[in-house]
Design a protein around this nucleic acid. Sequence first.
DNA 1: TGCTATTACCGAACAATGTACGGAAAAAGT
DNA 2: ACTTTTTCCGTACATTGTTCGGTAATAGCA
Lengths: 204, 204
Amino acid sequence: MAEKQTPRERRRARTAQAILDAALAIIAEQGLQALSIREIAQRIEYSPSGLYEYYASKDEILDALIAQGLAQLNEMLAHVPSGESASEWLFAIGEAYLAFAREHEQLYALIFGHIFSPSGLVTSLDQLQHNSAYGQLRHCIQTGVERGAFILPSGESIEQQVYSTWALLHGLAMLRMTRVSAVTGIDAINQQVLRSAFAHLNRA
Amino acid sequence: MAEKQTPRERRRARTAQAILDAALAIIAEQGLQALSIREIAQRIEYSPSGLYEYYASKDEILDALIAQGLAQLNEMLAHVPSGESASEWLFAIGEAYLAFAREHEQLYALIFGHIFSPSGLVTSLDQLQHNSAYGQLRHCIQTGVERGAFILPSGESIEQQVYSTWALLHGLAMLRMTRVSAVTGIDAINQQVLRSAFAHLNRA
DNA sequence: TGCTATTACCGAACAATGTACGGAAAAAGT
DNA sequence: ACTTTTTCCGTACATTGTTCGGTAATAGCA
């Protein structure tokens, strides 16, 4: 399990992570279009060409950023306590999802702007299925159904329910970014929408 | 209403549109990252610098492309026949929305990848509210409620219902792009999800 | 019809970007 | 101590968006 790390490997992993941290900071501060190899290099006091010892291209840096972001989201959702009722659990997961999208706007936009659209990483297939929000959602809903807390609308499979739940969450997260709904209280509204949407799952 | 168009203005509008057409073709064929000023110029047999007589920057071209795409989507949804029951109408609108996203993948990704995220056009506020999918959805749902065909879950406003409906549609459209669900029959599944989601609106 | 001002377009050049390459310094392995 | 590998850098190159001055075409007007 614990593979030996030579000091060299440790140092290498550290600067590789420093690159990602710098990149993420730039994106969070100035947006994706401001991310350049030279900016990253300057922040970690490297020469631009030095980065290529760690990542073969800018795209590879973005991919690593996305993978890390997905892992972080996954961990957040995995740590949502499942003690309460399945209904509350699902709601809490939904809230955590929206919170992640809210607190990491640029990262969230990067993730779901690169996974979708052309040449989306093939890895993202596994990512979405087993290692991220989608998997967490399915786990929660499936558990709820097995416990008898959730009732699926007739003719609907669990997969379908997970699918539409995720679609709703993602749509809410995206719509929030537009600030169209700067009508104040957008987050409260989102909560209400979640409650109402999930209410249909509860058995009468 | 009909402002006089001098021949000069007509010609100008024509090449301005030719630029957009070329840009859209490039995006549809090779994706957004392949869109360059020089490629556009070559297709319409102009010099790269010639384009700047019509658009001040590449971003301005993208903005125009987005505006045109939103208008097209709006028109598609507006032409969905409202003759049938409100329920069928809403379903047809949802299907038309997903069809647009499916048949114009790159354009759809461009639109909702630029409207969201930083420095999203402020104009998009009006766009979304009055002149696009959001407005069409609200119109349909509102009509349904007024006719008594739709029943809102207690405590939910129309705005909320429109909001979550759009979120669901957008999420489904985005999720489809991942091809994660290349399980075949994704479109049929989407239809089922729509039916099930909208079913909650019908009065018993 | 001629003169003038505006418009349309081009070629060349510039700055910023991602990236390849060769070499130097440092570290590791023997 | 010598060799090999790993890091890192300086330089250079191609491609990008964009600017600028100039030239041809057109429109407006006398």
